[in-house]
């Protein structure tokens, strides 16, 4: 800006109430709050977050109330992994949540306004990711435990409880699984800058690919984010990855997507 501009602004700042210099932690809290307001004020993101819970629990009730006992009676039934069947549906909502929350910044150039308010892009992206991740994890854990306990309520004598080997681990892991799905989607949304693009990559990837590959064990398939992440839901997972290693592989996928998203946010013009 030219000299004549800075002179009046300097004199003006004396008359305008400007708060004392803030510490970094204060502005982090402020930006976190701002991002939370953004999430909860958007129908799409609130809706998909609610849908994570609603879809998973609804499908669980539907399936377990109808074919639950028959399936559980099956000789090669895997009661723990089976309990989380509906997570396949809930994860679609988790993906939508991560996608909408980020892609909303790319609608009508909203990002320009956001970055004008929070020009430190690392703070902006970090706060957004943290809020998304925390919200998805909270809802994910609630969903995971409710699904497990709710589904078992229909199984009578076949029911397993949280005391079943690996049950608590699977419930907690299920929550992290949903949160990581949301973050994977969020990172991709920041790279692709379009919700439709993310959904058309991730939905087929998580819904169709596992069916096509089927139970084909071994090979690269078990390192795909959803396959690896779901290892945590098995009582005694087969394949190369253990429960936590599997979730770790999924976390690496989500981390890579978030890193790519950070690169895009940092480097590109808003």
């Amino acid at each position: 800006m030219s000299t004549p501009t800075s002179t009046p602004s300097a004199s003006a700042s004396a008359s305008v109430s400007v708060s004392a210099p803030v510490s970094n932690s204060a502005s982090v809290t402020a930006v976190l709050r701002s991002e939370w307001i953004k999430v909860k004020s958007l129908r799409g993101s609130v809706g998909s977050l609610a849908a994570v819970f609603v879809a998973t629990v609804a499908v669980t009730v539907l399936v377990f109330a109808t074919v639950g006992r028959a399936e559980a009676d099956n000789a090669d039934a895997e009661p723990l992994f089976g309990a989380f069947y509906a997570l396949n549906f809930g994860q679609v909502a988790a993906i939508s949540f991560g996608t909408t929350a980020v892609s909303s910044e790319y609608v009508n150039g909203a990002l320009r306004v956001s970055l004008a308010a929070v020009p430190r892009r690392g703070l902006f992206y970090g706060a957004k990711t943290a809020v998304l991740g925390a919200a998805a994890l909270l809802v994910g854990l609630l969903t995971s435990f409710t699904t497990f306990l709710g589904g078992q309520a229909f199984l009578g004598e076949h029911a397993i409880g949280l005391g079943h080997p690996g049950a608590v681990r699977a419930c907690v892991g299920g929550g992290f699984y949903l949160a990581l799905m949301a973050l994977l989607a969020a990172g991709l949304a920041a790279v692709l800058r379009s919700g439709v693009a993310v959904l058309s990559v991730l939905i087929p990837f998580t819904l169709i690919v596992p069916f096509v590959i089927g139970d084909m064990a071994g090979g690269v398939a078990q390192f795909l984010p959803d396959r690896a992440g779901q290892q945590i839901l098995h009582e005694d997972p087969s394949g190369m990855l253990g429960p936590w290693a599997g979730l770790g592989v999924m976390a690496v996928w989500a981390g890579a997507a978030l890193a790519a998203g950070w690169w895009a946010v940092r480097r590109r013009d808003a």
């Binding site: 708060s19 803030v22 204060a26 502005s27 402020a30 930006v31 709050r33 701002s34 991002e35 307001i37 953004k38 004020s41 958007l42 129908r43 799409g44 909303s104 609608v107 009508n108 150039g109 909203a110 320009r112 306004v113 956001s114 308010a117 929070v118």
Partner: peptide, 20 residues
């Protein structure tokens, strides 16, 4: 440059919150 699905007040609230 405002997300069409947000209300004006929420749009401003989110901006305001980030700058306390």
């Amino acid at each position: 440059a405002a997300h069409g699905s947000r209300t004006a007040r929420n749009h401003l609230l989110a901006l305001a919150a980030s700058n306390r």
